[in-house]
Nucleic acid binder design. Structure first.
Lengths: 186, 186
DNA sequence: GTCTATACGCTGATAGAC
DNA sequence: GTCTATCAGCGTATAGAC
């Protein structure tokens, strides 16, 4: 019944990763036990640790930042705020937003916190700093990072409230707000 | 050696609360064990539970929202963004910001998440919704809540980067950004 | 009313036999 | 690679001494 990595079926490792991804996303890091992940995957608890090193590393591997290219920052400066917010609120990136929120809620853990911080810097803040005109670009990029982080975290709460307003209006509103920091006027 | 609640010295309950406040703030919820809190307070672990019900309730009691009046929203609308940000970044509110960040990082826990959400609504978002002019006031208030939450969470990271820029400049920049959502123009 | 002692069931993680 | 057995530590509960 065992399947090698070259065959078509899922390996035990992949079954564990799939269970872990679902359960971490649904119940959070703390409430999801290694034993529960193993049971859902039809595997032994010890195998979870053997394959992934620790519960923490498994969490980061299945929910951590992907190698996605990150938001497009090369467009016109005058629309950068809107572009950023549209990227973040893109319906296609729903899973990414949820994973981010799950990680923030588990950032009690130092490795999780470090992963979040590094991902934000390399895929976003550093590139944004280089792109921003005017004075205090680094500080303004960090402040924009705070805005975007706040939006990603709050979105699951805000989205159901939208009703007739619509996502596009939210993109307009928040985009204009981010744009104020892009411009950085006095 | 025991001291009643009417005497001047700290009771065991107060010693436990003091230790818990320090250790939760320094090491977070998960990494702080009930046994470690008890040891630091010179008390028995069982007493921690007896006095506070659970580790979770102790955490909320020592780090949860105070009965502070919340930000002033009654000033002129044209300065509301700046007023809000100045309130949040007030050096005197440093401990509150740190407590908020600690709670967000532990919001893996459902009771913590509920406490944060309720506090934000009652002390801030609901009042702000009533104050905002124009359409979509509720949605705009939530978006401002996202901005403010993002700022409070990121501030410990941003503050050391300020250097010569200064807190006042950050208040100006972020305040103008919040103001864009207060105005809600197209 | 405090407080101590003890214990229960669960957790993440490890060592070593198949 | 996989499973069994086991570990120390966790949050929590309770019985009973002062």
């Amino acid at each position: 019944m065992s399947i090698t990595s070259t065959a078509a079926g899922p390996t035990t490792r992949e079954a564990i990763a799939a269970s872990a991804r679902t359960m971490f996303a649904e119940r959070g890091f703390t409430a999801t036990s290694v034993r529960a992940i193993a049971a859902a995957a039809g595997a032994d608890p010890a195998l979870v640790i053997r394959h992934f090193g620790s519960k923490e590393q498994l969490f980061l591997e299945v929910l951590g930042p992907t190698r996605a290219p990150g938001p497009e920052l090369e467009g016109p400066l005058a629309e950068l705020g809107r572009t950023l917010v549209a990227y973040v609120l893109d319906p296609a990136r729903d899973a990414e937003r949820r994973a981010y929120a799950t990680m923030v809620q588990a950032s009690d853990n130092e490795a999780v916190r470090a992963t979040l911080r590094t991902a934000a810097r390399t895929s976003f803040i550093d590139r944004l700093t280089a792109r921003l005109p005017g004075a205090d670009a680094a500080v303004r990029a960090e402040l924009i990072g705070a805005q975007i982080g706040g939006l990603m975290q709050a979105w699951p709460t805000i989205e159901p409230l939208l009703g007739a307003v619509g996502r596009a209006r939210a993109v307009d509103l928040y985009g204009a707000s981010v744009q104020a920091l892009v411009d950085g006027s006095h």
